[in-house]
């Protein structure tokens, strides 16, 4: 069949050629997008490829996080700030799970749960305690903060963060103080700030680990403090309330608590921050 008639190109062939060009263009675009994605997967913190950012921007526009993490943690050096927590599955860190969900409301947090080879048979609710896997989790650079929880056979909860400058931090109380500072500044009054820390110590050392007698004494102290102010350290909800609430819940003494404590438990629950902790205790 002759393709050319009188030097003129058949209009059907012309249309076919145009279609082929269009398909080739789309293929190149796709190839560039896949290469961009591959680059961000293999080098997690590489700059975002332009072709990828244009196709993903529509999904990520729901995030409008603040970036005062630079102020709290020093200048961002490019890599994702990953908070790695080793916790024993026999003692789930309720306080940290509550603070994690508060961090997620505030920042773009890449949350992952792992099981270390030292433990087996971790219950499913512990594996899903940080919520469903994020749809963009392959692109680490899109997040402000990493939260990696590893269920491990450790005698004491441990946090590793910025290991070049910081020693590993032991104990749920110290880690809770750290996470809370990323959410809200401590009270500026030295006495109130220290009161918060003092309640946090009481929660972890006397409520969570103490004897029945110690627990009863703490409940009395809570009751008298809550008779004077709505929250434990005054008129503001602070880490003191988060820690004491979680430890009262964990020690199972909520139902036997005196009146002011009961009222305060209801106030805490009304805030709606504590569902991650309640879920694990069911």
């Amino acid at each position: 069949m002759p393709m050319y008639q009188n030097g003129e190109v058949d209009s059907a062939v012309k249309a076919l050629e145009a279609r082929q060009d269009e398909i080739m263009r789309k293929l190149y675009e796709l190839k560039a997008a896949v290469e961009g994605l591959a680059k961000t997967v293999t080098t997690p913190d590489a700059d975002l490829d332009l072709t990828v950012s244009s196709s993903l921007s529509s999904q990520s526009s729901c995030f409008k996080g603040t970036t005062d993490l630079d102020m709290q943690l020093g200048k961002d050096i490019g890599a994702l700030r990953d908070i790695v927590i080793n916790a024993n599955p026999t003692q789930p860190p309720l306080t940290l799970l509550v603070l994690h969900s508060l961090l997620c409301q505030r920042y773009r947090v890449l949350s992952t749960v792992h099981v270390h080879s030292s433990v087996s048979g971790v219950p499913p609710q512990l594996l899903s305690c940080l919520g469903p896997r994020h749809a963009d989790s392959y692109a680490r650079h899109m997040f402000q903060l990493g939260f990696t929880l590893i269920w491990k056979d450790v005698p004491k909860l441990q946090m590793k963060f910025s290991v070049q400058n910081m020693c590993p931090i032991e104990g749920e109380a110290s880690v809770a103080r750290f996470l809370f500072k990323l959410l809200a500044p401590y009270p500026s009054d030295p006495a109130v700030a220290t009161l918060v820390d003092s309640w946090v110590d009481t929660a972890f050392f006397q409520l969570a680990e103490g004897s029945a007698k110690e627990r009863a004494a703490v409940l009395r102290a809570l009751n008298s403090a809550l008779g004077r102010t709505p929250w434990l350290s005054g008129s503001e909800f602070t880490l003191a309330d988060v820690a004491c609430y979680c430890c009262v819940l964990r020690s199972g003494s909520a139902s036997a608590a005196p009146a002011n404590v009961q009222r305060w438990i209801k106030s805490c629950e009304n805030l709606g921050h504590f569902s991650p902790a309640k879920l694990l205790l069911q």
């Binding site: 020093g74 020693c167 931090i169 032991e170 110290s174 880690v175 030295p190 820390d197």
Partner: peptide, 27 residues
């Protein structure tokens, strides 16, 4: 409390990360 009322001495560390290390050693 004493470290907080004398902030110029820096006894509680200079940054959030140093404060966290101090908390670790206090415990």
């Amino acid at each position: 409390y004493l470290a907080r009322v004398a902030p110029a001495l820096g006894l509680y560390g200079a940054s959030v990360m140093e404060q966290t290390e101090v908390d670790h050693w206090l415990e």
